[in-house]
Simulated scan of single mutants.
Amino acid sequence: MIEKEGFAALVLRLRAEGVTDLDLLTAFEQTPRTQFVPPQFASDAYSSRTIPIDCGSFMEGADLAAKILSKLQVRPGHRVLEIGTGSGFTAAVIGRIAERVLSLERYRTLVTAAQIRMDALGLRNIIIRQMDGSSGLHGEGTFDRILVTAAFSAMPRFYADQLVSGGSMVAPLILEDERCMMVRLTKTGSRFEREDLFPVPYLPLASHIAQHL
């Protein structure tokens, strides 16, 4: 019941925000958020509230997750790289649209839990690895889309060679005035065109694998 009512209320809020991508909304509907949040927060699964998860990480509210994914513009056939698996929810939604998702996470606890959820949902095209994703992923070819869920303090130009021509990445960027802005960077030639999307509350990007969590 939470699932159906929560999703219906979310769709109404998203329409008011101009998010109407049918593929995305269908993927959202097919990915039960209550299975990704800690049990005590099940009633907030479809709210706009940020939800704490293990290892000091958090899930963005359902509205923000949908807004970010709508700006990522994933299409069938795409290869997508995600930096910061967290609960695995965004990877699961992307995986219902894209051909292949590679998701990197620092914390072993989160990797293990997210993998269990993917297996339970039968999502075989999503690969989760425990890795330091602060400089992306080399040696896996190029991606059509890259999503980063922790904030950069400077334009991450080194990602340009990990994107196909015309590909784009969506990532939080800390601006000069300390505000954090979600930006879309589209690769044209060897450079990025930057488009500022909306302000977001995000943690700075941390490098290295966390050894004990």
Score class of each variant (00 low, 15 high):
34 T>L: 01
101 V>Q: 04
63 D>L: 13
45 A>R: 09
97 I>D: 09
37 V>P: 06
81 L>G: 06
67 K>Y: 00
78 H>E: 12
143 F>D: 07
90 T>S: 15
149 T>K: 09
19 V>H: 09
123 L>Q: 07
23 D>T: 06
117 R>N: 11
46 Y>K: 06
4 K>R: 15
115 Q>N: 07
148 V>F: 02
98 A>D: 11
33 R>L: 01
60 E>M: 14
124 R>H: 09
44 D>A: 09
117 R>G: 03
54 D>R: 15
91 A>K: 08
85 T>G: 13
14 L>K: 06
112 T>G: 03
30 Q>M: 09
59 M>S: 14
88 G>K: 06
3 E>R: 14
118 M>F: 14
126 I>Y: 02
111 V>H: 10
57 S>C: 14
28 F>I: 02
67 K>N: 04
80 V>K: 13
139 G>L: 03
6 G>A: 04
12 L>M: 08
28 F>D: 01
28 F>N: 01
89 F>H: 15
66 A>P: 13
117 R>T: 00
134 S>R: 03
122 G>S: 05
58 F>N: 08
104 L>C: 05
15 R>S: 05
89 F>K: 13
66 A>N: 13
128 I>R: 07
47 S>H: 03
57 S>E: 15
117 R>F: 00
36 F>C: 04
100 R>D: 03
63 D>N: 13
95 G>P: 10
96 R>K: 14
140 E>S: 12
119 D>Q: 10
60 E>A: 13
136 G>S: 11
112 T>H: 13
62 A>Q: 10
78 H>N: 15
61 G>P: 02
118 M>A: 01
112 T>I: 04
3 E>G: 01
5 E>Y: 10
134 S>D: 03
89 F>Y: 15
81 L>T: 06
21 D>T: 13
17 E>W: 05
34 T>N: 05
83 I>Y: 05
147 L>N: 03
21 D>E: 14
9 A>H: 14
56 G>H: 12
29 E>D: 02
43 S>H: 13
97 I>Q: 09
47 S>T: 06
138 H>T: 11
97 I>K: 11
83 I>P: 10
100 R>F: 05
20 T>Y: 07
77 G>R: 05
118 M>D: 05
6 G>V: 02
142 T>M: 13
83 I>S: 08
17 E>P: 02
45 A>P: 08
77 G>T: 03
65 A>V: 15
2 I>H: 12
90 T>A: 14
117 R>A: 03
55 C>E: 13
93 V>A: 08
36 F>D: 07
53 I>T: 09
82 E>Y: 01
122 G>P: 04
120 A>K: 10
19 V>A: 07
49 R>E: 10
90 T>F: 01
17 E>C: 06
81 L>K: 09
145 R>H: 11
93 V>R: 12
8 A>T: 07
131 M>L: 13
92 A>T: 07
70 S>R: 15
93 V>M: 08
119 D>F: 00
116 I>V: 02
16 A>T: 08
50 T>N: 01
100 R>M: 04
110 L>P: 12
98 A>Y: 08
66 A>F: 09
149 T>D: 10
132 D>S: 03
95 G>R: 11
14 L>R: 10
46 Y>M: 04
108 R>Q: 15
111 V>Q: 11
137 L>H: 05
92 A>E: 12
28 F>A: 00
